[in-house]
């Protein structure tokens, strides 16, 4: 597998690629139903994460709910 660079929440990481978004979340030890995922400005719904392959240079935002008024 080639190495690929991903920008996750603004931070660049390197990992072997390609992989699915679902596998990436698992690797990051995130509870999949507690986060929303956005890849290059497009929302990727949780049910599509297994089929969504992340690519070299992808900007991935992983978001959750915090307190707010």
């Amino acid at each position: 597998m080639d190495s690929m660079r991903l920008i996750i929440n603004g931070k660049t990481i390197e990992r072997p690629g390609p992989c699915s978004l679902e596998a990436l979340l698992r690797e990051l030890k995130l509870m999949a139903d507690r986060v929303a995922t956005v890849v290059n400005d497009d929302v990727v719904p949780s049910k599509l994460r297994a089929a969504h392959q992340v690519q070299e240079g992808d900007r991935i935002e992983i978001l959750t709910f915090a307190g707010g008024g």
């Binding site: 929440n9 995130l30 929303a36 959750t64 709910f65 915090a66 307190g67």
Partner: peptide
Amino acid sequence: VTVALRRF
């Protein structure tokens, strides 16, 4: 209740 979005 309101909530806000934030980076994990």
